[in-house]
Each structure stands twice: as C-alpha cells, then as structure tokens.
Design a binder for these strands. Structure first.
Lengths: 206, 206
DNA sequence: TATAATCCTGACCATGCGTTCAAGAATTAC
DNA sequence: GTAATTCTTGAACGCATGGTCAGGATTATA
C-alpha cells in the first residue's frame, strides 16, 4: 500500500461508522442509541468504534455536522438572480426529495432541535443565522423588485421546512394514517404538489 | 377527611407527577428522561413516584395518552356543517395557540412519532386513523359541495399539522434564527397569518 | 528483514438508572 | 381507640452502557 492508503482505511471505517451512527441516532435518538448497537450495525466490535471515535458525543457531533452540511446545500436555488417561481418550486422539490432519500439525516436534525439543540446551539445563532438572514434577504429582494407578493420571509422558510421535512421526520405517522406500512414515491409526489401550490399561491405566483 | 378524599391525594400526586413527566419527557426524550429528575421536578422522592406509577413505561404511556386526547380535541372545528374558510381558519388558530400554550405536549408527541411510534403504533393505525378518515371525509364533502377547490385532504392535514406544530417542536430553531432567546406571542401571530393565508389560498378561499 | 506506526479486540471497570423492599408514618374506617 | 388501609422514603440490587486498556495482529517505512 502507498502512503495515501494509511488514512484510507481510517476513512473507510469512519465512513461506515458514521453511516451506521446516523441511522441508529435517527431511529432511537441520542440517549437510546448505544455505541454497541452502532458498532454492530457497522460490523465491528465496540472497542474498535471507540478507537476511531473517542466518545459517543464526538461521534454524534460528526454525524450532525454532516447533516447540517447536507441541509444547507439544498438551498442553493434561492439566489437573487433566479426567478421566484422556478426557484421556490425547485427548492421545495429538493426538500421533498431529501426527505425521501435521506430520512435518517432529517430525523437526526429534528431530534437535535426538538430536545433543545444542546450540541448546535452556537451554530444556530451563529453561522446558520447568517446563512438564514442571507436567504431571507433574497426573498425580500424579490418582493422589493415586485416579483412576488409580500410575505414574511422568515416564517415562509419555517413553514416550508416544516411542510417538507414532516415527510421524513413523521413518516411513520403519515404512513399509518394513509393505511400503509411506509410512504411510497407517489405520496412524496403528492406532497410536493400540494406544498408547491400552497407556497406559490401565498406568494402570488400561482 | 371523607371517603372521597382517599383518592384525592392520589389524584393530586398523580397530576403533579404527570405534569413534571410531560415536561421532562418533552425536554429530554424518553430515554434521557430519568425518573429521578421527574420526581425531583414534582417535588417528591423517586421511590414515591414509583409508588404511583409502577414503571417508567407506564408513566410515559399515561403522559402520551393525555397528549393524544388534547391533540384530537383541537379538531372539533372540522365538521360538515361548518363553512370551510371559517373552520380552517379557526383550526389553524387553535393549532398555533396549542403550540404556544402547550409546547411540552406537542414535543412529547413529536418525539414519539420521530422515533417510530413504538408506544402508540396500534392507535395510529386504529382509532386515530378512523378519526383521521372522518376528518378527511369532511374536507372531501366540502369539495364535493363546491365550497372549496379540490385539494388532497390527507396531505392538507399533514402539511397543516407540520406548519403549526413546528412552532412548538422546533421553537428553539425558530427563535435562534430570529435572533431571540424564545418565541414571542407576536411570532405566533405572524405564523398564524402566514399559514392561514397559504392554506386558504391553496383551497381557493383567499 | 527490522522497526515503527497503525489497527484490532476481548476483557474489564465505573457509573447511572429503573426498580424493589422493608419499615415506619399518616390517614381512614369501624 | 384500634385495626386496616394508604402513603412515604432511605437503602439497596441488578443491569445496561460508555469508556479503558493491554497485548497482539497487520501494515508501512528503512
């Protein structure tokens, strides 16, 4: 093996562990997730997991940093140059797709916030707020340019996130009430259509 | 004391414990919530808590049954005799008020669903589904009567719940991104206005 | 091949927590 | 007043779990 392969094994195992951790943290929450069960899902002994991640808290931190990075990425569509109708539609579609394709990530984030965001409190009022303010400014810019009806940009995001992420976070509820074992792609399509219609209508873009 | 006061002390202490439990379960989740901390918040020794509630699981069950009862109650407005616009507006207002006044209840429910609804799975696909189907039938009835535009009634509820409950479940996030320590009544008013506008617009009731 | 660095893992430890228990205090019933 | 019932609580038990460690295996470097 070459020099660069030294870190390669580490990277491989860390990736495996992180994937398993994301799933277990999502399904059971931080406290109920045991390092033993994460290790088992990753296919290695518990002591080996603790070789790569000293503490459970450190592992969790890495997981949630990944999740936040993915979360922010989906907002690229929201930029001043874009047209509101297309941008918002694409953003909603992306959010719904994310809920369908990465439910674990969404659930980890939801669980973190739900219990007071003890791990990411500083980021929420720091760089994430900065990012959020910038995105709100884009909406305000569209409104000022007469491209859409005036709405509260901050609450627009809150509601939009809630409406799209609910299909990941609370999928069990939706599926049960629909009389299904789990949500089907068609359900996500229905959701996307309704949320898009609601948001566009509220923004006078219907 | 009279005979009826025998159960009175029990009822008093159970109520105290249930209130404390709702708060602790909401703030920390089921696993991270210790019976010791619940007892401390209720102002009595741990052993005494276990005298009234044999197991932590039994206590949790009682808490979540209460929460579900409150949750279902708020949907009284949705009935065939009502007018869609007024009924939906009142329903949304009630939901937002519930998020503002009973954030703990909403969070306990959210946490339960988020982690797979292990405790209330049967209810979700049982009596709650029946209740849900009835409410959807009301919407369908309104649509059939030409009182509102055709929308997917089931997803309308999912999105409506998400948009209103997010102000309880994820209040920490909203507050942080708004640059505040906690949400103010005015924030809930703004939320109610936006959600109402969105829903009514999507239903052709704007 | 020699040696250093990295990786692996069974066994162990310490702690926290749900639950039980026994013995007594307080309250109710007769 | 007295017996029966209900309530109270410190102490202890057993188990699960996060984390440690020592010694060995594997891989990289010279």
């Amino acid at each position: 093996m070459q020099k660069r392969t030294v870190g390669a094994k580490r990277r491989l195992n860390e990736t495996r562990i992180l994937a398993a951790a994301e799933q277990v943290f999502a399904e059971r929450g931080y406290s109920a997730a045991s390092t033993a069960s994460i290790a088992a899902l990753a296919g290695l002994p518990k002591a080996n997991l603790h070789y790569y991640f000293r503490t459970k808290q450190a592992l969790y931190r890495r997981v949630i940093e990944n999740v936040i990075a993915q979360w922010v990425e989906t907002s690229d569509q929201i930029s001043l140059e874009a047209e509101p109708k297309a941008a918002l539609s694409a953003y909603i579609a992306g959010k719904i797709d994310f809920s369908r394709l990465h439910p674990h990530a969404s659930k980890v984030f939801a669980s973190e916030i739900l219990h007071g965001a003890p791990t990411i409190a500083e980021r929420l009022s720091g760089d994430l707020k900065t990012w959020f303010d910038a995105k709100c400014a884009v909406i305000e810019g569209w409104i000022a340019a007469g491209k859409m009806a005036p709405v509260d940009s901050r609450h627009l995001f809150f509601v939009l996130w809630a409406a799209t992420q609910t299909y990941a976070d609370f999928d069990v509820q939706a599926a049960a009430l629909l009389g299904q074992r789990k949500l089907r792609p068609a359900d996500f399509a229905d959701a996307r259509q309704l949320v898009t219609a609601m948001v566009l209508a509220a923004c006078g873009l219907g």
